[in-house]
Design a protein around this nucleic acid. Structure first.
Lengths: 134, 134
DNA sequence: CTGCTAAACGCAACTTGGTTTCATTAAAAA
DNA sequence: TTTTTAATGAAACCAAGTTGCGTTTAGCAG
């Protein structure tokens, strides 16, 4: 865990280790609130948000907007670099348990855009029912 | 414009006609704020949000979450029904002018989900540069 | 080990998108 | 024209996320 922080040249602090731990143990993408629920430490709101920003900028995690507009965070695959995420995978949101998971092995298919449109990145969120809820 | 409201069996009011007019004249998906900017009438915030909810439930418009979590609204194609939208098109967000448009003629390709996952709907948002900003 | 400094933290106050409650008004059916 | 039910408006509220600023601390140089 600490190595990740060292690799990215950011200071190793308790807060960062804790947030990293929670994110790494979570199977689904989680919100700020979930992080607060899962920690025993008292983490300041601002610090948590700033930490998540830092992690995202450093390519440690990526964010997905949930259906209701709140940000969810999830670990990146290995092939992400600073400011240049390669999170070309599909996200699945279960309508029953309301969790969002990364389908790392399902790539977003390429689409043919009309003339004049240039793509940088894309996000595909599939809504439905997950295996656990069936 | 009024016919749309009559067809959906909801009351025809000035507010609804106005919001419908603004939405119909807009080429891109717009937020609550844009509606306020574009109207000469004084529209109450609550009424606007409720009207947008109603329109969405009736299948007159659909919503797309913007990159920064705020809701954008856009007209539906003809083939939407109450609570059962058929908005299977790609949305394009321009990173320069920060507008989101419906690419009605670009369908979301189907993806092969892992075993046990069942799809209801999906959203594909492409980020990049639009023809106007090139 | 000690001091230094930039980076990280913590608190309070704020902003913003959106909702709840409840009393008032008006569309359209009877 | 009356009545009823849906729609509106105002105020207060809520929650996610941010800003400003003073304090602390990681980790480096000496």
């Amino acid at each position: 865990m600490e190595e990740i922080l060292r690799e990215k040249n950011i200071k190793v602090t308790d807060t960062r280790k804790e947030i990293l731990r929670i994110l790494s143990e979570s199977k689904s993408a989680i919100s700020y609130n979930t992080i607060q629920e899962k920690t025993a430490l008292k983490l300041d709101k601002v610090t948590v948000y700033r930490t998540l920003d830092t992690f995202e900028n450093k390519g440690i995690i990526h964010s997905i907007p949930s259906e209701d507009g709140i940000k969810l965070y999830s670990f990146c695959k290995d092939d992400c670099h600073d400011h240049d995420h390669d999170d070309n995978h599909v996200h699945f949101n279960c309508e029953m348990c309301n969790t969002t998971v990364c389908l790392y092995h399902v790539d977003i298919p390429s689409v043919e855009l009309p003339k004049g449109y240039y793509m940088h990145s894309s996000k595909l969120i599939v809504n439905g029912i997950c295996p656990e809820c069936r």
